[in-house]
Nucleic acid binder design. Sequence first.
DNA 1: TAATATATTAGGAATAGTTCCTATTACTGA
DNA 2: TCAGTAATAGGAACTATTCCTAATATATTA
Lengths: 135, 135
Amino acid sequence: MLKSNGRRNTKQRQAVLAAVRELGNHPTAEQVYEVVRKQLPGTSISTVYRNLGILSEQGMLRTVTGLGREVHYDHNTGVHSHVKCSSCGRICDVMLRREDMPRLTEEWLCGYILEGISINFIGKCPECAEREEIR
Amino acid sequence: MLKSNGRRNTKQRQAVLAAVRELGNHPTAEQVYEVVRKQLPGTSISTVYRNLGILSEQGMLRTVTGLGREVHYDHNTGVHSHVKCSSCGRICDVMLRREDMPRLTEEWLCGYILEGISINFIGKCPECAEREEIR
DNA sequence: TAATATATTAGGAATAGTTCCTATTACTGA
DNA sequence: TCAGTAATAGGAACTATTCCTAATATATTA
């Protein structure tokens, strides 16, 4: 819970979390902002960024980086990867399990103590593949 | 070769490629710029960016994204991954081979036609791990 | 070697995404 | 209900990168 960390439960924070969950498909900060503004018109983009950061820090959201310039936010905080369409940018979950992850030897990691693995796929989504083939 | 694509072989372009090779450890555009300026003081940062782009396009360099906000450039264009230190930012090659890659089923990929996989590791390099433990 | 066509350049403006700053507001616990 | 302080709006600042334009340099051709 937020309060245990000295955080307050403001309506802006609630709206940001709700927007990420409602949008579902890995929205960017800008997309969250659009939705939040409908409910709380006065909300500023910096408030959205601040709350996305705090909610991620508290483990209520997950940040998804490495899929382009923008950071995406995911309400699904479990272990999984993503595939992004190189045409339309749509992002889809890839349910890699631990045993499907690459097997690593210590020597490959140059002595680094591993903290995280990020696996991103890029491809063409079915819709874009079809549309682009027709032309 | 560059010329077969209507490209010219300018001294700035040569210097950019040489700098990436010389630096070795996955430099950013800014780091390449620093080195190039020593040899060709008048060179502008936009020339560095343009040439990094062209050289990557020609397959003479590889761009490494997903390790942070900046793009890194790699003179090693073969198949491999990277591990980045969460403290000092140092990047090291990880020699994952194809058979160590995750095995994917079509269903996981939501029907996307796969174009690329990017696997990034984050960790603590031996030096940072030791230094931070002492304190 | 000289002339020509055009790819490339320097320099700076512009852009996108994000973070930072400050005075004001509004939660929360007492 | 009040005090303490986390959070806010609004905008400035920042960072990495791309875009623009007139001038320059390279490669081809004569």
